[in-house]
Design a protein around this nucleic acid. Structure first.
Length: 292
DNA sequence: CGGGACTCCTGCCAGC
DNA sequence: TGCTGGCAGGAGTCCC
């Protein structure tokens, strides 16, 4: 569920905790997440300084000293929990839901635990283990197999109507599937694809190559718009967050179509009803009246 | 090569 | 109340 805006919100929340700080100790509680963790993962993290915390698509990139970069992908259920050592375990800021704790205070799915200079503890917790962590030489990060084929960042100048037109040209697959393809544009997931198609009034079933220039332009703008609005909302939930109840607001976004099957279309001028269909084993929510 | 189906995993919820 | 089955989905892999 974490898509680009959620990952960006997590990054911003972690910045003051991690950037410029040393990882004083690292513990890994298993050898693999979705894939095997790199050899001696925890050992290689210990003593490293986080020089910069960056993001590419849905990947968090912690540039460390000694020319290593830690990649983090949250998958479906991954979260980075921040607490302050010396206080009660859950009293610190927590980036996402409160995690379930056993009696020892350790979370059931706490897979990697980092103690950070300054007293913060950062925990990678991931129930479904669709997430991933890796280490890769910083100076050849672009060759990492998970990063090498990613398309442009949707909020960068590289993502344009021209790029999208060229990427969709001649494609017969549904536009919904094309927008989920990270090689075309990187960082969108099921939710924001549904939202952007709604905003652009384009049916998720349309053949990718059949979009008019006007539709591609509208879609490009909508993709930017929904992501920027979600980051803004995440940012405000971060500012309002003081840690006691332990939950960020970004999974409480109110979406215009996603998850709204059977409800009236969010457009005042439209009296359609949101429908759900399954495309490539994934739910698409849309209004068949105004999305054509 | 494009594109669809399948796979991983566990929490949650509807239904009985 | 407790069990069961289905569903959620990012992204790689497999196969046609």
């Amino acid at each position: 569920m974490p898509e680009l805006p959620e990952v960006e919100t997590v990054r911003r929340g972690l910045l003051p905790v991690l950037e410029g700080k040393c990882i004083e100790s690292a513990v890994q509680n298993r050898l693999d997440l979705r894939w095997p963790l790199p050899e001696r993962f925890a050992e290689r993290l210990t003593g490293r300084r986080v020089e910069q915390l960056s993001r590419r698509a849905k990947y968090l990139l912690a540039y460390l000293d000694a020319n290593e970069t830690m990649l983090i992908h949250l998958g479906m259920s991954g979260r980075l929990l921040v607490s302050t050592v010396g206080r009660e375990r859950d009293s610190g800021a927590e980036l996402h839901h409160a995690a379930k704790r056993d009696r020892s205070g350790a979370g059931k799915h706490d897979h990697v635990v980092l103690e950070i200079e300054g007293g913060a503890r950062v925990v990678f917790n991931d129930a479904r283990r669709f997430g991933a962590m890796d280490l890769w030489p910083s100076d050849s990060l672009h060759t990492h197999p998970l990063l090498a084929r990613l398309g442009p960042e949707p909020l960068s100048n590289a993502f344009s109507a021209e790029h999208l037109t060229a990427s969709l040209e001649g494609k017969r697959s549904a536009i919904k599937s094309a927008l989920l393809d990270q090689r075309i544009v990187a960082g969108l997931g099921n939710i924001y694809v549904c939202e952007a198609l709604f905003g652009a009034k384009i049916s998720p079933e349309r053949a990718s190559g059949s979009l008019s220039p006007q539709e591609v332009t509208a879609l490009t703008a909508e993709i930017r718009g929904v992501l920027e609005a979600a980051i803004e909302a995440g940012g405000s939930s971060l500012r309002d967050f003081h840690g006691a109840s332990g939950e960020l607001g970004y999974f409480q976004h109110s979406f215009r179509v996603y998850g709204r099957e059977g409800q009236g279309c969010a457009r005042d001028a439209c009296d359609g009803v949101v429908e759900r269909l399954v495309q490539s084993a994934r739910s698409s929510f849309y209004c068949s009246r105004c999305q054509r």
